[in-house]
Nucleic acid binder design. Structure first.
Lengths: 337, 337
DNA sequence: CACTGACATACACACGTGTGCAATAAGAGT
DNA sequence: ACTCTTATTGCACACGTGTGTATGTCAGTG
């Protein structure tokens, strides 16, 4: 079933059919309608390969994702990112091609080269790591690139992230409104950009609210175990805060474990608030109050950035998505003295 | 950069170039080598659209996935399924097109129709549900289909699943070897095929080991809350088993919570074993011993089924992947009396 | 030397769609 | 009635690749 078949049945040439289906003003309204109706009846669908061959437009986006590494992160958000991306590109009539980034980067074809070969118009990366050897090439890419949760500067590269600054404010506002004034921060490693952004936001909030003297940083590495140990150390030193704001949920769960082991009750003795809205926090005891990112929206925004670029626009290279506060049972109001 | 350019530079026609690059025996070995070398130097890559147009082969697989629903399940395995699928198809020189299945199935184009339009050669479904209105059409599909974790009969449809029977045996063997004889089963809802398979495997194991009188089924619905409540009821009735085998991890965590609340210690008083190897089980207290599926391998197997079909073979329509036992801290050996 | 056959390359067409340009027809204006 | 304009359709080519067939070449054989 091609436009030639339709042409024969309609008694016109395939050119007229082509123009009709593409709503060209060059063809009479009545024949246009007639042909459209005929095409619909016959269930005609254009051959995308032929069309792409001649138009030189692929109407295809690509998405690279790394699933094996940073598995904690990816397992929780991966499919939601992909959901947002797939839905948004489908809504715009674009196909989505999927690739994996493997850990052994030795004899591997460059991502950008692969995109060119597949005629991908724009590409999204999920789970990019700073040790990837193709970073420079990506930064210089001719085709629009959008990276989720990893900042890279380049003329055609965009960056989508959750608004960490706002997330921390949301969390601290919640603690503040519940009467907490002595709040420690269980932070991530200094090499992690995200950890530093969150820690900085914490420092500024505390200072702005006259709590500079209460600033206390516990340096973890995002694992549950590090949260557990830093909290043990804090308990040993005495002088517990009334609340702990953790830079991610896993460390928060570690903190809960350490405190429980020493007989403290959560949240009556110490309130805990996490970050990321990981499933384990929903199923933990008590349910962990936390900051949720909006991965579906992040994926959709990444696609939007690419389309803006493709339309010739100059979208902001960095786009922050609003997080939201998820209240469960690990924060308790305390009377203000 | 097309084969015509190469032809001009090599002083031959594009036909010769085409044949050379496709290793046709019709062209002299030396010219073949010369042209291949030239193509490599020029970084030539064939235009897939032109090729597909003439060969009528797309070299493309499709994957549909449902991400918003059954979110507990998908969040944990989704990206790993996709990883296995993407890697396997890429290794075979196939592209992978991604689609989402939305929950509102009203005015939606049929999956199979979509596949035909996109010229997909084979398609994989993840997260299929029994209320999907397109099931009949999928069952009758002309193009090979493989569904993960959902059984559907049809000439061209395959079914990939974890071997639930073996998984239950693995779990019960572990309990048996640790001296447990009184083992209750926290099962899923009767409408769930997976739940029934696991429950049946439990019954057979118990019977085969002379423990028929110890068979005890707690009927949950796969949520943590149902595990919590069924366990509470069991505690109230007295006569606790020494171990509980749960049909999934979330119910197991609910059971843990109920037991802990009543002052029982896990695993010293009651051993618990889950199923699925969900992240929350890794981060719970105590770490949950469980049965892990191998989602990456499952994804790869789905692709393999499609390729076997495409090659004209008759692969088994049902393929079970071996699960594995993941030992953490929720099972304890008890002395045999 | 002529003929045969094998081998290598060129020619020409096809795949399905889009589009510039020519051709035709119809209508308007004088 | 003739010309000029405008509206509509057809013609022909292009996109890049694959392939059946014809053409050419060269060596071997009688």
């Amino acid at each position: 079933m091609t436009i030639k078949d339709i042409a024969r049945l309609a008694g016109v040439t395939h050119s007229t059919v082509s123009r009709s289906l593409n709503d060209s003003p060059l063809v009479a309204t009545e024949t246009k309608e007639k042909i459209k109706k005929l095409a619909a009846e016959l269930g005609y669908a254009p051959n995308t390969f032929a069309r792409r061959l001649v138009t030189k437009k692929s109407n295809t986006l690509g998405v690279f994702f790394l699933s094996r590494a940073e598995i904690n992160f990816m397992e929780n958000f991966g499919t939601q990112f992909l959901d947002g991306i797939a839905t948004a590109s489908s809504n715009n009539g674009y196909d989505l091609l999927m690739f994996t980034m493997t850990r052994d980067l030795s004899n591997q074809k460059s991502y950008i080269r692969l995109c060119q070969e597949k005629h991908v118009e724009g590409v999204i990366f999920i789970g990019m790591t700073s040790d990837d050897p193709h970073l420079a090439e990506i930064a210089a890419s001719q085709i629009p690139v959008c990276i989720i949760d990893f900042e890279l500067k380049g003329d055609n590269v965009g960056f989508i992230s959750s608004d960490n600054d706002q997330g921390i404010r949301l969390a601290l506002d919640h603690l503040w409104q519940n009467g907490h004034r002595s709040i420690a921060h269980l932070s991530g490693p200094e090499v992690s950009p995200v950890a530093m952004i969150r820690e900085d936001a914490y420092r500024r909030y505390m200072t702005a609210h006259g709590l500079e003297s209460k600033i206390k940083i516990l340096r973890g590495d995002f694992t549950k175990d590090s949260g557990y140990r830093r909290t043990q150390e804090m308990i040993r030193q005495g002088n517990l805060p009334t609340a702990v704001l953790s830079a991610n949920d896993y460390m928060a769960l570690g903190a809960v474990k350490a405190l429980k082991e020493q007989g403290y009750k959560i949240p009556s003795d110490v309130s805990i608030i996490g970050y990321d809205n990981v499933l384990a926090g929903e199923y933990s005891d008590p349910g962990l109050t936390t900051i949720g990112q909006n991965p579906i929206e992040m994926g959709a925004s990444a696609v939007q950035y690419l389309f803006d670029k493709l339309k010739g626009g100059a979208p902001s290279p960095i786009h922050l998505i609003n997080p939201n506060l998820i209240i469960r049972d690990s924060v308790r109001p305390i009377p203000i003295r």
